[in-house]
Simulated assay, not measured.
Amino acid sequence: MSTESGVPVVADDVRSLDAKESVPVDLERWSLLASRSAESEGGVGELTLTFVDEAEIAELNAEHMGKTGPTDVLSFPMDDDWVPGVPTLLGDIVICPEVAATQFTDHAGTFDDEIGLLVVHGVLHVLGHDHADPAEATLMRGRELALLRAHHWHGHEPAGFRQTHD
């Protein structure tokens, strides 16, 4: 079960919801990354960032994606016709820190970089990016790196960082 935590943070309205997880997350830090990433891409409006446990994300994955089991991140765009710079309901991003904790060594390299990548990845999906074909994947990965460099690392990515799983 998720419960609301705190007051909306920048980008008009970024709310973090926190599950009673076995893996703690810094809600303010990740809300700020989501907000800054959305703003950098021209997204202005309401964006909800939710952290849930494996059972809840598995349920959402089955209900919305038709897939079995937990996943790391799900994104739910609200308005497909959003216009950069115009306030709107951007959407919801749901992240499972427990899944992130099991995969970060084979993916982003550190737990913090994994969560950062999942937040940015989710924001980009909400704003209409996808990775269904190679050209889209290249574009999306380029935006992920640019946003992580600007708002997470404040410089170049660390050695060992990967955007794709080993």
Rank of each mutant, 00 (worst) to 15 (best):
E98V: 13
Q103D: 07
L32A: 05
F111P: 00
L47I: 13
L89H: 08
G66W: 09
V52L: 00
L117P: 08
K67I: 14
D72Y: 01
T68F: 07
L118A: 10
D53N: 15
A62G: 02
L47T: 12
E46K: 07
D113Q: 12
T102Q: 07
R36I: 00
H64N: 04
G109H: 07
Q103E: 15
V83H: 11
L47V: 10
S31G: 14
E114D: 15
V123P: 13
T88I: 08
I95P: 01
R36M: 06
T110A: 06
F76S: 05
E63A: 13
P97L: 06
Q103M: 10
T105F: 15
S35Q: 08
V86S: 04
G122S: 11
T102R: 03
D79F: 15
T102A: 14
P77Y: 07
V94F: 04
V44D: 02
S75P: 04
D113F: 08
E54Q: 05
E114L: 15
S37Y: 02
G45C: 03
V73Q: 03
L74I: 14
T88L: 11
V52R: 00
G66Y: 11
V44E: 07
D80Y: 12
I115A: 04
V73A: 06
V123F: 11
W30K: 08
V126I: 12
H121R: 15
L89S: 08
L49F: 03
D26S: 14
M78V: 11
V126N: 01
L124G: 09
V126E: 02
T105D: 14
H107C: 10
I95Q: 02
K67H: 07
F76W: 06
G66E: 01
E46R: 09
G69Y: 03
T68W: 10
V52P: 01
A55V: 14
T48K: 00
A58P: 07
G45N: 00
G69D: 05
L90H: 02
S37Q: 00
D80F: 12
A62P: 00
H125V: 15
W82P: 01
V86I: 05
D92Q: 12
G43N: 03
P97S: 03
V94M: 06
H107D: 14
N61R: 02
L33C: 10
A34E: 02
T102P: 00
F111T: 02
A34I: 01
C96L: 02
A58S: 07
H125P: 12
